[in-house]
Design a binder for these strands. Structure first.
Ligand SMILES: [Mn+2]
Ligand SMILES: [Mn+2]
Ligand SMILES: [Zn+2]
Ligand SMILES: [Zn+2]
Lengths: 153, 153
DNA sequence: TTTCTTATTGCAAAATATTTGCAGTAAGCT
DNA sequence: AGCTTACTGCAAATATTTTGCAATAAGAAA
């Protein structure tokens, strides 16, 4: 697995200025097990700041900055906007285990219950679309919905 | 193709009360070529009202009512929430050409350009998931994103 | 190091999309 | 016609994301 140092180096090469905000976003997503929302990344930074364990004192980062950095990193193909669940988007680092092994879910339109439906089978489709359209850094968002057994009368 | 009268009859059987709002939503989606947002359904009704062609005078329907009716009709499996594009959800009648032959798109994360990538190939997956999970009335939302040729330097 | 340019930031506010509370209305049953 | 309560309109809340703008700071140049 790529080291955080190497990853940040790659980011530094592609981005006009490597700022604390960009570093924070990348580091937090790097440490994450799953995809995160902008708000979750923000909260994660707040916690880390609150834990004081790191010196020198960590600066504040606005939620707006998180959004702007995620957008820029997405355009550079470093971050990908993956799933739109419960009203907000989720992000992760491209090319990572999190991206590749995301498992889609199905949610009940009635009670909201969520069920994982196993690992993604569309990564191959991403490649086919790349060939057909010429697009690069392709990702996808898939969400299944239906009525769960309890909600089906 | 099912007639609007028959469709409304089916809706009447499933719904506690068939109101003007529910009728409006169903009729508008029935006449639609493509999936629509709640706002588009609302605007469509406003236009139809403005055209005065229909007598007696058509009543106002609030956008909130459209949302509430769409939610109820979705839970009954009559309407399906299909795609989340440009910030809002799109709806259509289940079992229609619009649902079956929706074509997914890929959008450029940089310039926003959209490209259709052909008819959906996931309807079969819906069925497999139904068998595995016991869910019914399954639908899916798929959105591919990437960088289009012009935005790839 | 200091200076310079301008990408980036924080804060406030706007823009969207969707949901909720509530009092009044009306669909459909008796 | 009367009754019940599902449904509606309106206003307001919520939630998410975007935008404007003046202040700040990253990184190149001097
Ligand atoms: Mn997938
Ligand atoms: Mn599809
Ligand atoms: Zn359920
Ligand atoms: Zn593009």
């Amino acid at each position: 697995m790529e080291s955080i140092e190497h990853l940040l180096e790659r980011v530094r090469e592609r981005v006009p200025r490597l700022t604390k905000g960009k570093k924070a976003v990348v580091e937090i997503l790097f440490a994450a097990e799953h995809s995160m929302t902008a708000q979750e990344i923000y909260s994660s930074w707040e916690e880390r700041k609150h834990d004081q364990s790191e010196l020198p004192h960590l600066q504040d980062i606005d939620l707006v900055t998180i959004y702007r950095n995620l957008e820029q990193l997405e355009k550079l193909g470093i971050v990908c906007k993956m799933e739109h669940s419960h009203g907000s988007w989720r992000y992760c680092l491209t090319g990572t285990h999190t991206e590749r092994h995301h498992s889609h879910t199905i949610s009940c339109v009635s009670c909201g219950k969520q069920l994982a439906i196993g690992a993604c089978v569309l990564s191959e489709v991403d490649k086919i679309i790349a060939e057909r359209t010429g697009f690069q850094n392709i990702h996808h968002v898939v969400q299944f919905t239906g009525a769960c057994p309890e909600c089906t009368v």
